[in-house]
Nucleic acid binder design. Structure first.
Length: 938
DNA sequence: GACATCACG
DNA sequence: GACGTACGTGATGTCC
């Protein structure tokens, strides 16, 4: 294509390549090329971003010219002006360095101009191109969100934040810097920049700088007239540091005269050469992207081979996932042949299809099996046709093997201790099969291994662990969406209504994918040193949780109904009162309408909040208003509390009582929380009210069966005890050994007051700090929690760290480890990835705090898991069942006569649960209670 | 489906 | 000086 010149009507995009790379690196988990282990995560992210950029629809706004600009070397002319410039930039991570040249290659593969010049920063090159293009009468868009480039905005130049998709024009720049783009460098010169090590004026930030520049017009005028400044400290700073400020300005000012190796014309947009682009992507072994690009370009995708290192024996090429080797089993001979295959292989990947996600209600529709990649079968047993009859039953499709015959044939295999059952979220299938053929005692599958739990042991913190996501991520395969079979929304059908020929490929694929995931993950466990965590903390949870869920807990619907009625009356009364106070009727449940009434109509203080610009009406805000004596917010708080209790608890809980068992059967997610905690859903039984008297009464509806009692045992202060152990804090450890009130001890040490006769207020503050520390405390957070001034909160924290210096050391070490390794570990070896830890900016704080919290919360989760896994054996012979787990509490149902025996046995297991893996140097203490219902037992 | 809110440890 | 600010969850109702 011949260059056609650059001028009016032309539109140049300048892409900040380095920003793309770092963004890609930190956004993605470490990824290596399969064949040789070359790190390619950042290249993958970079290519995905470029591809998204290239394929974005822009219509009229489409660029005519484009270039990606990179930094070439660390030393530039700025180091001659100021040697310390960018001196405190950390070295790029080890696994990122080899990826820099690959990103240049990627850019060329996309056929976009790739620009870098020795000795010049990307920002200056961008500036020079932008100035030239602007002077030639064209438009320029800088694709970056770097604030250092904002000085270039205006006169046909704007910016585009590639992540948020937001255009940055003069207004946005003014919003950020408080001055127009032409004065941005003046503000930056004054404020300096800690990241780039630009000194600026000490004690002056962007706000103050903008105020000064707006007052005096520009930096030179300001420095000349510095003597007129009223604030003495500020005046002296500017006078003393005038030279440093001028140097800073030279550092932040981008150079439009930077020499350029390429002409504007040469940046004209060119279509990529499919061969070159696909060749590069295949070489990088990016399966998904290669396929996507090939499809879009209408080209044949090249084979993506991850050849193993040449010295290793070649692994057999796996057949493609193409559904060709799938079989539908409809006769006894075929089923027996599959059972023989399973026996010979010694393992089987299994998946069940059912009519419902609720395992208590679900009926079995079919079973799929796989023993080797490329080959799987589906055994339909419950597909129906036609509509339901009067009893809600439809006719079975002809030709399916009888359900009971299939189950009776499979039971010996599924329970055979020599045959490994491989599944994805096996707890689901385990529960389904346990409920079948009750006359034969159900099917209790064993031994088990679970690809979802393997992924969790390896990758907790990096991503979720559902099959579709794992298949796409690790096998480069997109599964058939369930929506294609059952639809969605109102027209959704049950799986048993799906025709067998449509169901078979879907179901068989699930078994095959599971098998392939197993082959992928299993060898990684020892390499990543998570085998023990998987074997000890994950895998054994499956039957334990399945039995708890199947047991359920008895809930009295009548009690809930009575409460619902009482709440309804109370709500109606409160609503009348609220409308009266507001002077109009409105939806009390709408924060939007409430905000308008409180803050617009009544004019109460409490400005706008949040990114949506809406008023916050959260309990925090309303409590402050109520404390000032306003009645309306106080009534709203009352209404909210009752409404929550009614809707989430007394109403919703009734719908979860199983009609067959009269009990509520929650479902625990083993991989739902990043730290190793369980999560409870449908319904969530881990957040039943307890903190208020009115809420706690809901627990009265959770009752023991006839002749039984509920027993609750909970760990006392387990997270603080773990902190005392891992951070090795002598004062804390001693206090726990002596069994004294830990918060009172903390207060006594911090404020120098005796524990005896302590002011409850002081103790409350110490308690808040003790908890705050576990969460990665900040002065701001503590001040808000305690409603005290920030300075005071900060003072407490400083005193705390002074008194317990080991805590600071532990936190620093945890964060340093996370930064180096990309993960943290609990005492018991559980690994939690910390992908955001090396980010910069506001997100970094959150990642840092999460990294500090994870080993503590995670170790507590490990301990109770260890107790739960040992519990069935420890209480065998007692007429008792474990029903619920609430993070640090276990709830049992036991015959009246055995209450004390159960408490003794369970307490022994819980208090000794860390051992023998870890010998804690603080005692674990378990408190116990019992009663007719959960309120009494807790 | 996003957001705000609030229940728990 | 400024940034944004306690950790981990799930369910509900409103509003677009």
């Amino acid at each position: 294509m011949t260059p056609t010149g650059f001028g009016k009507g032309s539109h140049l995009h300048l892409i900040d390549g380095s920003a793309f790379i770092f963004r890609a690196y930190h956004a993605l988990p470490p990824l290596t090329r399969k064949s040789d282990g070359l790190p390619v995560g950042a290249v993958a992210g970079f290519c995905n971003m470029l591809w998204k950029y290239v394929t974005d629809e822009r219509g009229q706004d489409a660029p005519t010219h484009a270039a990606v600009i990179f930094d070439h070397s660390a030393k530039t002319f700025r180091n001659e002006i100021y040697p310390a410039y960018k001196a405190n930039r950390p070295e790029p991570p080890e696994d990122l360095r080899p990826q820099f040249p690959l990103t240049r290659e990627a850019t060329r593969a996309f056929n976009i101009a790739c620009i870098e010049t020795e000795g010049f920063e990307a920002d200056d090159i961008i500036a020079a191109f932008a100035c030239q293009a602007r002077d030639a009468g064209g438009r320029v868009t800088i694709v970056s969100s770097d604030k250092d480039l904002m000085q270039l905005v205006g006169g046909g130049v704007d910016m585009l934040d590639p992540i948020k998709g937001k255009t940055i024009g003069p207004e946005e720049v003014a919003e950020k810097f408080g001055v127009g783009p032409d004065r941005v460098v003046d503000v930056q010169a004054l404020a300096g920049d800690s990241v780039d090590n630009v000194p600026g004026a000490p004690g002056i930030g962007i706000k103050t700088a903008a105020q000064l520049i707006n007052e005096y017009g520009d930096l030179e005028t300001l420095l000349e007239r510095a003597a007129e400044i009223k604030q003495p400290k500020r005046r002296q700073t500017l006078i003393d540091h005038a030279e440093q400020i001028r140097v800073s300005k030279r550092l932040v000012t981008l150079d439009c005269d930077t020499p350029l190796d390429a002409s504007l014309e040469s940046l004209e947009i060119r279509a990529p050469d499919p061969q070159a682009l696909l060749g590069f992507l295949a070489d990088m072994e990016f399966r998904t992207l290669t396929a996507r690009v090939a499809e879009r370009l209408g080209a044949e995708p090249p084979a993506v081979v991850s050849a193993p290192p040449s010295e290793a024996p070649a692994a057999p090429e796996l057949p493609a996932i193409d559904h060709a080797g799938y079989e539908t089993v409809t006769d006894r001979a075929a089923l027996d042949a599959w059972i023989a295959r399973i026996r010979e292989a010694g393992h089987v990947a299994i998946d069940t299809e059912t009519t419902s996600l609720d395992e208590m209600q679900a009926a079995l529709v079919g079973i799929s099996l796989a023993v080797e990649p490329g080959r799987a079968c589906y055994v339909p047993v419950g597909h129906v046709q036609g509509s339901d009859d009067l009893f809600g039953q439809a006719a079975l499709v002809e030709g399916q093997l009888p359900l009971d015959q299939v189950l009776a044939a499979l039971k010996p295999v599924l329970e055979d201790p020599a045959i490994l059952k491989i599944g994805q979220n096996l707890k689901y299938d385990w529960k389904i099969l346990a409920r079948q053929i009750p006359e034969l005692g159900g099917i209790r599958m064993a031994p088990l291994t679970d690809t979802m739990l393997m992924s969790y042991a390896l990758n907790a913190g990096s991503h979720n662990h559902g099959m579709d996501e794992l298949a796409e991520r690790y096998l480069g395969h997109r599964c058939i969406p369930i929506k294609d079979l059952i639809g969605s929304g109102k027209s959704q059908i049950r799986f048993d209504q799906v025709p067998i020929d449509k169901a078979a490929p879907y179901a068989a694929e699930d078994a095959e994918i599971t098998l392939r995931l197993y082959r992928h993950f299993a060898p990684m466990l020892p390499v990543e040193q998570v085998t023990t965590a998987y074997e000890v903390l994950e895998r054994p949870m499956i039957p334990v949780l399945a039995d708890m869920e199947l047991a359920g807990i008895r809930v009295e619907t009548d009690t809930l109904k009575r409460m619902s009625n009482a709440f309804a009356q109370k709500l109606a009364g409160l609503e009348d009162e609220i409308h009266e106070l507001a002077g109009e009727r409105f939806n009390v449940g709408s924060p939007k309408q409430l905000g308008e009434i409180l803050f617009d109509k009544m004019g109460l203080a409490g400005g706008k909040q949040g990114k949506t610009g809406a008023f916050s009406t959260s309990a925090d805000v309303l409590e402050d208003l109520a404390a000032e004596g306003h009645d309306l917010p106080a009534r709203i708080l009352d209404w909210r509390q009752v409404a929550k209790l009614k809707s989430t608890y007394t109403d919703a809980l009734q719908t979860h009582v199983d009609p067959d068992t009269g009990r509520v059967h929650t479902s625990y997610s083993i991989t739902g929380a990043q730290t190793g905690r369980l999560a409870s859903t449908d319904p969530n039984l881990q957040n039943i009210p307890v903190r208020t008297e009115e809420g706690r009464r809901i627990r009265e509806a959770f009752v023991a069966a006839e002749g039984h009692r509920l027993v609750s045992l909970d760990y006392s202060q387990i997270e603080l005890r773990i902190l005392a152990h891992v951070a090795d804090i002598p004062a804390l450890k001693q206090a726990f050994r002596d069994g004294i009130d830990i918060h009172a001890m903390t207060a006594s040490q911090m404020f120098g007051v005796p524990v005896e006769g302590m002011d409850p207020m002081i103790r409350r503050r110490a308690k808040a700090i003790n908890f705050g520390v576990i969460y990665g405390i900040s002065g701001f957070g503590l001040s808000r929690n305690l409603r005290i001034p920030r300075a005071e909160a900060q003072q407490f924290i400083d005193t705390y760290f002074e008194r317990f210096p080991e805590i600071r050391a532990y936190m620093d070490k945890t964060v340093a480890d996370a930064k180096q390794d990309g993960f943290v570990r609990t005492l018991f070896g559980r690994r939690i990835n910390t992908p955001g830890i090396n980010q910069s900016g506001p997100a970094a704080g959150g990642a840092r705090r999460a990294a500090i919290n994870a080993p503590i919360q995670g170790a507590a989760a490990d301990i109770i898991r260890r107790a739960m896994i040992r519990m069935p054996e420890a209480i065998r012979g007692l007429p008792a069942r474990m029903l619920l787990q609430v993070h640090d509490e276990l709830v049992f149902e036991v015959q009246e006569s055995a209450v004390e025996d159960l408490i003794a046995a369970a307490r022994k297991v819980m208090e000794g649960a860390a051992e023998p893996a870890v010998k804690l140097n603080v005692p674990l203490i378990v408190d116990a209670g019992h009663g007719m219902n959960w309120a009494e037992a807790h």
